[in-house]
């Protein structure tokens, strides 16, 4: 799983049914010091996050199927938690 900042929202009308009714965001992975690192990802929201939040993203294959209780869920990256606070030591 990785820390990320929600940058933008992806609006789409034609999509796979598993995405109906779900918010899809563009997230930028960040270090604990909230500096951007690496490329953006697209993630499906499950906790009611919004643009500008720091969140925890990730997911194993097939997890979305269980989490959303769907027959078929071609979803990989989930937004699992909205971060309130991060305590961390320095890192390389």
């Amino acid at each position: 799983m990785f820390l990320a900042k929600i940058k933008k929202r992806v609006v789409s009308t034609r999509k796979h049914p598993a995405y109906n009714g779900k918010h899809v965001f563009v997230v930028q992975p960040v270090n604990p010091d909230l500096k951007a690192v690496g490329n953006e990802w697209v993630a499906v929201d499950y906790v009611g996050a919004s643009i500008g939040d720091i969140v925890v993203c990730g997911g194993a294959p097939g997890v979305a199927q269980q989490v959303f209780q769907l027959d078929y869920a071609p979803i990989r990256t989930l937004i699992m938690a909205i971060v309130d606070k991060i305590d961390f030591r320095d890192f390389q």
């Binding site: 034609r14 796979h16 294959p61 979305a64 027959d71």
Partner: peptide, 20 residues
């Protein structure tokens, strides 16, 4: 998970379009 974009849920793929 790309295989689950197919109706059968089974396909030898690891990349699929899910949203326009």
């Amino acid at each position: 998970d790309a295989a689950q974009a197919f109706d059968s849920g089974v396909a030898p793929v690891n990349a699929a379009v899910v949203e326009l």
